[in-house]
């Protein structure tokens, strides 16, 4: 709300500065454009604090209020949220890496090598992508353990636990498909072990190798398949399951509480 009251004439310099501050504040936060973006006022009253959560698309994943015990860090250690945060960092750094990377056997390795030496912050982006990817796998496991040991999978949250197990698998597969992309010796032979494991599936071994790896040995079609899975198919799938996962937390009554 704009300041409508007449504050009277400022009597000294500090009051003058105060008036100036109010004017600037009004100009920034109470103008037509700002209020078209942020519907609620500055979150300094309980009402606005609830509105800011409820009316913001990103914050509305949260309820507006929650039980005191759930705010304690030792209850969740933020593990699920941090896993999601890793996913966000991976998306941003991954997009930046995609600018410089061509998934062909001829170019992939060279592109990564040049990214590290010729691109500003290229090495940093690749390192971030690598380490946060490992962190995401670790955090997914830790989050799963947290949910298990706090009994948070119990009714009515059974299905959300299953969605979580699917997300665990997706995270592992996402990480594994990314492992091949630098097309170095580490990548090739790790993927070869994966190929062997996939081929050992009873009855469907050959089919799994053909469909997932694009052949019976690691080659250009494997690289292209893993790239496509890694940059679009699996992240999209993971995002869908994450949306369900977060939605279900709210629908199933928020975080688990003792009876």
């Amino acid at each position: 709300m704009a300041v409508t009251e007449d504050p009277g004439k400022p009597r000294n310099w500090s009051e003058r500065i105060g008036v100036l501050q109010d004017r600037i504040y009004d100009k920034i936060f109470h103008n037509y454009v700002w209020q078209s973006i942020f519907r609620s006022g500055y979150p300094n009253t309980p009402r606005n604090q609830m509105l800011v959560v409820a009316t913001n698309v990103f914050l509305h994943l949260h309820p507006t209020r929650l039980h005191r015990t759930h705010v304690k860090v030792t209850h969740t250690y933020c593990l699920g949220g941090l896993t999601f945060f890793m996913f966000l960092i991976l998306t941003v750094t991954g997009v930046l890496l995609m600018f410089y990377y061509v998934p062909s056997v001829e170019r992939a390795y060279q592109d990564i090598a040049e990214l590290e030496t010729n691109v500003k912050f290229g090495l940093l982006m690749r390192n971030m992508h690598r380490w946060t990817a490992h962190a995401m796998v670790i955090l997914v496991f830790l989050h799963m353990m947290r949910v298990f040991y706090t009994g948070a999978y119990k009714p009515p949250r059974e299905f959300n636990w299953v969605v979580g197990v699917i997300l665990l698998v997706l995270t592992l597969v996402l990480s594994f498909t990314g492992y091949l992309l630098p097309w170095d010796q580490l990548a090739l032979w790790a993927a070869t072990i994966g190929l062997g494991i996939a081929g050992s599936a009873p009855y469907f071994g050959d089919e799994t190798q053909l469909i997932v790896f694009g052949g019976f040995e690691i080659g250009p079609s494997t690289l292209l398949r893993f790239y496509t899975l890694h940059v679009i198919a699996l992240p999209l799938l993971a995002a869908i399951f994450m949306a369900v996962h977060f939605w279900r937390i709210r629908r199933d009554g928020g975080m688990a509480r003792p009876l």
Binding site: V105, P182, L186, W189, A190, I197
Partner: peptide, 24 residues
């Protein structure tokens, strides 16, 4: 700490031992 980047992939040269990523 830099992410590892070994030599160019080569089907004819098998590292010994060759290992899967840690979670596998």
């Amino acid at each position: 700490i830099n992410a590892p980047l070994l030599n160019h992939a080569n089907q004819d040269v098998t590292p010994n031992p060759s290992k899967a990523p840690w979670y596998f």
